[in-house]
């Protein structure tokens, strides 16, 4: 039943450049360490804090959040997971179109929530190895609320060190998005093309 997933253009490029880089330089393979995973999340948090403090208009802030997503999130993997089994029968073109629509949808959806963080701050705590990735825990301090936990899962297996999941007080982002995309597909009788179209129109 299992058939190999089609590689996206981007991951092929990543593979190719990764391969040529390893031929050219006898450096150890790119590897996420406890320290680098923590550092990545620190950068994400610093960027988000900077955007919130910038006092720009909402549209400008949303654009900045989109950039944070582009820079630090492994949107391809998140998109593929959100698609679930559907990804297996999808064509490369469909996957690519879906990923692009999904990227925009995610950054808008999560970027819009920045208001809730105004006046708050996030502190990076610890990183620990889980399976093949690192879990970086942070504490969010929002006004008038007990501090709560936000964790990021960081991996470099896409070729670049990025985060591919986050848990906000236990709420699994990947799982929410798989539920959401699954529901969208159900409503459209399983049509991926219609789902892609509607996802593009959402933005």
């Amino acid at each position: 039943m299992t058939k190999p997933l089609p590689l996206s253009r981007r991951s092929m490029i990543a593979l190719a450049t990764g391969a040529s880089a390893s031929l050219a330089l006898p450096l150890p393979a790119l590897a996420t360490t406890k320290r680098s995973a923590k550092k990545l999340v620190e950068k994400v948090v610093a960027d988000i804090n900077r955007i919130i403090d910038s006092g720009k208009g909402e549209t400008a802030m949303l654009a900045d959040f989109e950039q944070v997503f582009a820079d630090y999130a492994d949107v391809e993997t998140i998109a593929r997971y959100a698609l679930g089994v559907e990804a297996r029968s999808a064509s490369v073109a469909q996957i690519n179109a879906f990923t692009e629509a999904f990227r925009k949808y995610m950054s808008t959806k999560y970027g819009k929530r920045f208001r809730e963080f105004i006046g708050g701050r996030v502190e990076v705590q610890e990183a620990r190895l889980v399976k093949s990735f690192y879990e970086v825990s942070t504490t969010a301090y929002l006004q008038g609320m007990a501090p709560f936990e936000v964790t990021f899962l960081v991996s470099d297996r896409s070729g670049e060190e990025k985060f591919f999941n986050m848990f906000i007080e236990g709420l699994n982002m990947l799982l929410s998005e798989r539920t959401e995309i699954g529901a969208m597909l159900d409503k459209r009788r399983g049509s991926l093309d219609l789902t892609i179209q509607d996802l593009q129109n959402l933005n």
């Binding site: 997933l5 993997t77 889980v130 990735f133 896409s158």
Partner: peptide, 13 residues
């Protein structure tokens, strides 16, 4: 639990 963490990269790369 550690085994319940989903690893989306498993089998992908």
């Amino acid at each position: 639990e550690e085994e319940d963490y989903f690893d989306p990269y498993e089998g992908l790369y």
